[in-house]
Design a protein around this nucleic acid. Sequence first.
DNA 1: GTGAAAGCGCTAACAC
DNA 2: GTGTTAGCGCTTTCAC
Lengths: 332, 332
Amino acid sequence: MSVTIKDVAVRANVSPSTVSRVISNNPRISDATKERVRAAMAELNYQPNLIARSLTNKSTKTLGLLLPGSNSDLLLNPFFVQIMRGISSYAKSKGYYILFTHVDSDEEEVDVLSNLVGSQWVDGIILTTVKDNDKSIAYLKANNHPFVVIGRPDDDMHTYWVDNDNINAMFNVVDMLIKKGNKKIGFIGGAHEFKVTKNRLLGYLKALKANNIKVDLNLIYEKDYSEEAAYEASKEIINYLIPDAIVTTDDLIAFGVQRALIENKLDTVSLVGFNNTVLSRYKVPSITSVDINAEKLGIFATKLLINQIEKIPILTNSYIINTKLIERDSTK
Amino acid sequence: MSVTIKDVAVRANVSPSTVSRVISNNPRISDATKERVRAAMAELNYQPNLIARSLTNKSTKTLGLLLPGSNSDLLLNPFFVQIMRGISSYAKSKGYYILFTHVDSDEEEVDVLSNLVGSQWVDGIILTTVKDNDKSIAYLKANNHPFVVIGRPDDDMHTYWVDNDNINAMFNVVDMLIKKGNKKIGFIGGAHEFKVTKNRLLGYLKALKANNIKVDLNLIYEKDYSEEAAYEASKEIINYLIPDAIVTTDDLIAFGVQRALIENKLDTVSLVGFNNTVLSRYKVPSITSVDINAEKLGIFATKLLINQIEKIPILTNSYIINTKLIERDSTK
DNA sequence: GTGAAAGCGCTAACAC
DNA sequence: GTGTTAGCGCTTTCAC
């Protein structure tokens, strides 16, 4: 059928092992035979069968990427695609493939992992969300399988992870708003089970405290990552009081807030998004947002994982990716 | 190291081949031994090594997914993620994995394909864009490798593909607008090299013709898939004349148009997007758009591909996925 | 109904 | 420097 190492060997009048050595560029092969073998490979249009190689090497040069399920708008968020782009490009540069799977439910997640890992399909796993007491993390640790998570895990000293400094990023947003004179600041975040939400909320609280502003629980909402839920939450806040500003944990959420603000003609209320998606810039008014460098998150996560797999000594088990506040018209 | 078929065999006091037969549920194995083997597998927590299986079976149960490069906002478009979700969920239901790669340039595309195919990593390929004289399609055909494309290819009788009826979908949009009294209708599309753009333009032209409206080339723009480019194009159209309506080939483009319209206080101009992304619904005014059923595109593409790989007789080499016009406030 | 043996395409230890 | 050989973990033909 397709041409194998044996065919090349016959053609070049050498043994299969010699061909293999030429492929891996083994220095002990004479230049003459190298030439001959390479010529044979070219003539026969030979391409190594990576499956066979994987079997002997016990390594597939493939990374598994677990994406969250379809129960929220989370995946529709462009920042996921940016992360994927980062992962894909770094992986490619290091000769790795990416296998991806959606996970529909929490229970399923460990099953899927167990398949991927147990079947020896992947050399490592990239997790894209982190929860408290994350089952997937627990499973991978128990099985001692290389993995990296995007987001800060509970056991941040003994896990490979990348994340933004979400506490600080949100602290800066809120602090900036307060310095500009805003006092009554609402917070609308995604589901509380996600670490991101939790940490951004922490940053919010920290900033209030640092500026001696009392926390008002009626101004704090944590729902799911949808435009609609955010819209509803904003209306509740507005009914309670007219805030000076509303901060959110995602642009999609900010879009929902903006809709509510516009509907209620509240053009004095400041608004801040997160993740700096393409559209935040083009909204009217354009929305101030925090650029989280999603592509970089993907790149460094993959780097951490590949170093781990290839046992390349690394100085750190994590990277904090810098964020950048992009001020636009929605904050005065 | 990890537990293999041999370990199970020893434990269950049978030969490896028997274990293999139990795994594949071979009917000639007695229920008693089946039981025994299954028990052994459970006790040892055995999971088949898929790499080894792939080597013997000459099938990896993995599909390669090629995504467009980073030179446009195309990939940031939520509809891509929806397609991926469709692909992933159907593939999963049939026991297939998905390997994905970004392609940065056209030249690179064939290289990447040749790697994927030649290395025998994937059983089939999913192409997500189609161009005229598509090199990738040519390569896959030449190598006789199973593939499917999302979008209608040149040789639509001898290629597996899924697509919307883009000509008709756009025809209906424009026809509807004309029936409502709009006459001067602008068209802003993505890059002309993409078949999608071409076909939607065709539908636009067809509708004008059917209604005896003369084509005005000053109202037709084909740029790239970006908000910004669309915004600029709209301004040029507005400078030329105030249109009754503007149709676009993508919501992202429509967003750019809307920004230009709002800036110029042109609230009488109708606007239609495409792909019905989440945000079109929440824009102010909400944007009429065409739902292309992206997830379904992914599902049926994968179905076509897997049937082909497994040599399941199929009645058709393509599916036309229905579209649905979602009327909102942007069209009067 | 079950076992023995060969082979998928590659790599690597061991010879010479 | 190069060849021989065994083996990665599985499936499958051929025996019995």
